[in-house]
Amino acid sequence: MGAAILFLVAVGLIVVGVVIYLIGVYNQLVHIKINIDKSWANIEVLEKQRYDEIPKLVKVCEGYMKYESETLEKIIAARTRFLGAKTPAEMASADTNLSGALKTLFAVSERYPDLKANDNFKQLQDRVSYLENQIADRREYYNDSVAIYNTRIKQIPDVFIARFLNYQPDEMYDIPDTEKASPDINFNFPK
């Protein structure tokens, strides 16, 4: 009788332990998944801020860069393309396009001393560069979050719970090879 009670209590405690452990694994997977969504949303917050700065930047440049309409149009086109991006891959591609166009603009602006001396332009350039750095950090964070998630859902015992939840591997924020080429910048310095 006593031995049976002791055995039942011991087994009961083990079962409680296993249940707590499995609930823990389930909660962790949900937490990791939500963390990916959150880190994605945090990139979008900064992308939106950068997106809002571009019209101001173009407006400041227009007055000085009358002969660089093509560069400015590229930025507007890249911004529009960015708006249509939905998946991480599309966004990575549109983002590289937009960053490239902005780099070209900042490089070309070197030819216009009056523009370089404009306080508004300097402020916007600093702001956009700062946002770009922050976006790069958050992309890295997003990729770290995805890497943790993709690893966890393949490990035992997480794999069983991940299957139960129908969790699939997530997509990294990878820049396509075609977009990795350096931006085409032509300097036409006066001879």
Binding site: Q28, N35, N133, Q134, R138, Y141
Partner: peptide, 18 residues
């Protein structure tokens, strides 16, 4: 649980903490 929280959260750069 705390150990898994530490392992599951990537390290942020201070410049871009959310």
């Amino acid at each position: 649980r705390k150990k898994y929280i530490i392992e599951n959260i990537p390290t942020s750069k201070i410049r871009s903490v959310a």
